[in-house]
Design a protein around this nucleic acid. Structure first.
Lengths: 413, 413
DNA sequence: GACTCTTTTGTGAAATCTCACAAAAGACTA
DNA sequence: TAGTCTTTTGTGAGATTTCACAAAAGAGTC
């Protein structure tokens, strides 16, 4: 074998990724695939039978299986790939059918455009061959970039359209239909607006990561995505594999925890509006999702596990109630009396009442929540109705006070 | 006609109000009256027949009829007149026999001394003529001032004062105290506004009967009383012999049943606002009482036994909730689904849900109310939460639906 | 009419809740 | 420090609620 570094077989221009992949295969004699940043398959070498389960799965579904992606993240392989210029060896991971591999990121300046994966046979690749992959990656760069450019141009059009949908610019459903047709988009049968709020502006880099998460989650099908300062908005449908009712709850939990785990981006809040059939309700769904976020900010404990507008319950009305309360400068006399009593006797009657009602007037549950004996609570409730002269047995009166209590907290802090 | 502003025909001294009134009549060719602040008639132009019922009533009784005064207050006309330097047009109010008019306050510095009223004929007055009235008012000032000097300050008729209290005309408590002193009235330590609504206008005769009932009831001490069309309004305190908390409830029940028993006057509704210490809260208390009446009309079953504002509970907010619901055109999906289900299967799930929540989620009570077996209700509730995909175990969600259900009924019928 | 699916009613045992009574602990006052 | 009032905790019996299971009745379809 020649001691010199072999001359670069990739220093020519390739017509497309397929041609490049075949060329890599010829040089390394191993199965090769090229994926984009979202692990979508764009080209793979054929004419070989020495391959593994993960690769077959990828080729069949045009995409790297979720299980494999998760594992690669968990093992820290993807982050390492993203940071390295050179090709890396990835030891086999038996239980997901991944044999020994070599991979390298395709990059343009600092931006990752995709990955080249090579399945190693029994004869391992030599270092010179790994170096060759670097050249292959360089050769892939313009091809991948072209791919992204096309996508980006389309995206810009989408973004405008998307905003117009969300802000109710379109007056008729027909108009929206036409626009969908123009942009060559499939109109979803039903859709939901999801929104996420971050603690900081969303950078270009974060945007990549989150769009990566969305496409790989396999929980929802995303139709539109837009980033606006510190807010991320999606129009999506549940993924067919998911139970529709929970798909979005699941996705939001998934998204928030993965943003934290994978990217250390904390304090993300998410919510979604009602699902509608006709896309002209996009504005409504968006406003609903925004309202959930707004209320979650004001009532973090109460709405900790609420993401869907439908589950807002009374909090759906908290803003108007609070506004009315302010306008009328009304304070429920019972609340005023209890507050005074609490201050004078260093007691906790107001909080007790709130917890009691919130626990559906169940003495035992409420007592547990308050860390007191059931009879203590019993006694307190008796005192509360005496001091505030309220009849807790009257549902309407009880709930009225509950609303007042909550509305007071609307702009606490 | 001369294009120049006509010279001031009132820039001379008049011997008395009669002379002034005639001069105004000559200049405007419309019927004119001059009243003092208590709407007592002091002068009126004669020699014309083009006049209306209100004016005739005024001339005959030497005073503007009570009904007309009350209406002018309620419509905000008197307050506007009191604040304006210029003459104001008052559009006709058919049902009290008031034709189109123009009026202007007679004032000395900032004190109101009375009013000039002009009945407009078919030919409306022109702006120059309205300006003329300003001069006429100035001419009236010394004449009215003389009148007041001669007259004792104490007024036997408190009606105006009462209206001013109820419509919040007084800006400071001090002002009200002074007025009480002027009128030689004892200021109540604490008070409450009660209001009753009749099915028909309250006649002079009924007025006697009800004022008789009030004084003989021995349940409340009445400070003020006013009758306004079909409404009776009181400012009162509990009678010392009565337990304060129940005095008003008792009185209202008593009053309603006695009106029916003794005088066969049926369908009277009564309500009262919060008790306040400072009389400047009279307006608030009155508005509270009115709100109770309004809500009782809309939710007769729910509020059958509610008279006090404090006991309105959630219904205190029903108007804003309903308004919000309409504005957002939002219907809770669970309600929509249940309604459809009811229609398709001839069932009663919506009503069941409402009763269930209203019975404080007590299966037994609710089953009794619905005349079904406990287990039937148990089954239905299970179905309801399935069909509407609601978690009745979540208080906030449950309560939210309850509010929606009630708000829907806001303007049923 | 047979069949299926939904709804209502019945039964009873286990779990849970309510409430009266009493003792103990704290708080405040004289 | 005793005395009073308020608040908390403990105990336990009786009432109430919950829930699984099953039978019966109704509704709708073929």
């Amino acid at each position: 074998m020649n001691e010199m570094t072999p001359k670069n077989p990739f220093k020519k221009s390739f017509f497309d990724l397929k041609e490049l992949v075949d060329s890599i295969h010829e040089n390394l004699l191993c199965p090769v695939t090229i994926e984009d940043t979202n692990h979508r398959l764009h080209a793979y070498s054929s004419h070989e039978d020495d391959t593994d389960a993960a690769r077959i799965g990828t080729i069949i579904s045009q995409r790297v299986p979720e299980k494999v992606i998760n594992r690669l993240w968990k093992e820290g392989i993807i982050p390492k790939l993203m940071q390295s210029d050179a090709a890396l060896r990835i030891p086999h991971i038996e239980d997901i059918g991944l044999r020994d591999r070599v991979a390298i990121a395709i990059r343009k300046n600092n931006e990752i455009l995709g990955y080249i994966w090579v399945v190693e046979g029994p004869r391992k690749l030599m270092n010179e061959q790994l170096d060759l992959l670097k050249d292959a990656a360089s050769a892939a760069t313009p091809l991948m970039a072209k791919l992204y450019q096309n996508r980006k141009r389309k995206e810009e059009n989408y973004q405008d359209f998307f905003w117009q949908l969300l802000t109710g610019q379109y007056k008729s459903l027909k108009e929206i239909h036409d626009k969908f047709y123009d942009l060559n988009l499939r109109m979803p049968d039903s859709f939901t607006v999801l929104t996420f709020r971050f603690q900081q502006d969303i950078t270009r880099k974060m945007e990549e990561q989150l769009s990566y998460l969305i496409t790989t989650s396999q929980k929802i099908i995303n139709h539109f995505l837009v980033v606006m300062d510190e807010e991320l908005i999606l129009i999506a449908s549940p993924h067919p594999s998911q139970p529709a009712d929970e798909a979005f709850d699941d996705f939001i939990s998934f998204f928030i925890s993965e943003m934290a785990n994978r990217f250390s981006i904390l304090d993300v809040e998410g919510a979604y509006g009602t699902s509608y059939g006709d896309i002209d309700k996009a504005e409504t769904s968006y406003q609903e999702a925004s309202k959930v976020l707004e209320m979650k900010k004001r009532f973090p404990e109460e709405l900790e596990n609420v993401f869907h507008f439908r589950r807002l319950g009374v909090f759906r009305y908290m803003d108007v109630l609070h506004k009315d309360q302010r306008a009328k400068r009304y304070e429920h006399p019972a609340i005023a009396k209890l507050e005074t009593y609490d201050r004078l006797h260093n007691s906790n009657l107001l909080k007790t009442l709130e917890v009691f009602i919130q626990q559906d007037s169940n003495m035992n549950d409420a007592a547990k929540k308050l860390f007191v004996h059931t009879n203590t609570l019993h006694y307190r409730i008796k005192r509360i109705s005496e001091i505030g002269s309220i009849r807790l047995s009257d549902v309407n009166e009880k709930l009225g006070i509950y609303l007042d209590l909550k509305a007071r907290k609307f702009d606490e802090k």
